[in-house]
Amino acid sequence: MIRKLALVTAAVLVSGTLVLPSAATAAPAAVKTLNVDYQVQVTGYYCGPAATRIALSARTQNLPGQDDLAAQLGTTENGTDHISQVVTVLNNDLGTTWYETKEMPSDPPSQEQKDLLWNDIVKDIDNGYALVANIVAPPDNHPPGYPNETIYHYFTVIGYDTDARTVQIADPANFGGNQIYWLGFDQLASLIPPKGYAA
C-alpha cells in the first residue's frame, strides 16, 4: 500500500486519467572531458603554440606542428603576445567563428567575470571545444609543480566537474611531470587576470 501511494503521488491526473511520469530527461554530466592530443611544448617559449595545438586536437586530427603554429601566432623568444592571436589561429585552422577573445582585466576578477568564465567552460566543453587560457602565476598561486617564480604561460582547459567545481588542464609546460591535472575553478579564475582566454 505504501508503494502504491508513492506511485500515485508521482503521477499526474489528466482529464480523469492517471498518467505516470515519463522517464526523466538526462541531466548534463557532472564531469565532462575532451579527448585531446597532448604535446609538451618543444621550447621554453612555445606554450602558446602547444596550448593552441592541444585545443585544435579536440576538433580535428589535421594538426599543424608547433613550429607552424608559432609562425601563425607570431610567437618569438618573448612568447605569444596576446590571447587574441590564439583566437585568430583557432578560428582560421578550424574554419569556424566559434572562438572569441575574453579579457579578464580585473584582479581579482569580478563575480560577473567568474560567472562568464564558468559558463564559457561548460558551453565550450559541451560543444567539443577546448579553451586556451593565458595566465600569470605568482609563486603564492601556482598550479601543481610550477617553479618558485612568476610564470607567464598558456595552457588548455579540456574538462570540468560541476560537483567539485574543478577544471581539467592540459599543461604543455609539463612542470614537475604534471601534464594533465585538475585545478579548482576559483584558482583558475585567479590566474587569468590581467590576461584573457579564448572561448
Score class of each variant (00 low, 15 high):
I135A: 10
A130G: 10
T150C: 00
L131W: 15
T96C: 02
T101D: 11
W118T: 06
I125V: 14
F155H: 06
Q111A: 08
P143H: 14
P108V: 08
D124W: 02
P147F: 00
G145H: 05
D115E: 14
Y154I: 10
Q113T: 01
P138H: 00
P139T: 04
W118S: 09
Y146L: 03
S106T: 05
N148P: 00
F155S: 05
P109N: 11
S110D: 14
M104E: 10
N91H: 07
S106A: 11
A130M: 07
A130H: 11
Q113P: 00
E149C: 04
F155I: 10
L116E: 13
V132D: 09
T150F: 01
K123D: 11
P139N: 00
P139Q: 03
P147M: 02
E103T: 13
Q113S: 13
Q113R: 11
P108C: 06
V157D: 05
L94S: 09
T96N: 06
P108I: 12
T97Y: 03
H142A: 02
V136K: 12
V136Y: 08
D115V: 05
I121S: 02
G95H: 05
V89W: 02
V136R: 14
P143V: 06
A133W: 07
E100L: 12
Y152S: 00
V136M: 10
D107S: 15
A133Y: 11
P143C: 07
L131C: 15
A137N: 11
E149L: 10
V157A: 08
L116F: 11
N148G: 04
G128S: 06
N134Y: 09
H153M: 05
A130S: 15
P109M: 03
N127Y: 03
T97K: 04
L131I: 15
G145A: 14
P143S: 11
Y152M: 02
V122F: 08
E100F: 14
K102H: 15
N141C: 08
Q113H: 08
W118E: 13
D124I: 07
D107Q: 15
A133I: 12
D107R: 14
N141R: 12
I135W: 15
P108E: 08
Y129V: 13
V132K: 12
D115R: 12
V157K: 11
I121C: 10
I125W: 06
P138T: 01
L94F: 04
L90F: 09
P139S: 05
N141V: 01
Y154M: 07
N92C: 08
N91R: 01
V136Q: 07
I158C: 07
I125S: 09
E149H: 02
N127H: 10
T97N: 06
Y146K: 01
N119I: 12
E100V: 13
G95R: 08
M104H: 13
P105Y: 02
S106C: 05
I125A: 02
P143K: 14
D115I: 03
L131F: 15
A130Y: 15
N148K: 05
N127V: 07
D93G: 00
V157M: 12
Y152T: 05
V132S: 03
Y152R: 04
D124R: 09
G145R: 01
Q111F: 00
T97H: 05
K102W: 13
P108S: 09
H142E: 04
D115H: 08
V157E: 07
Y129F: 14
I151P: 04
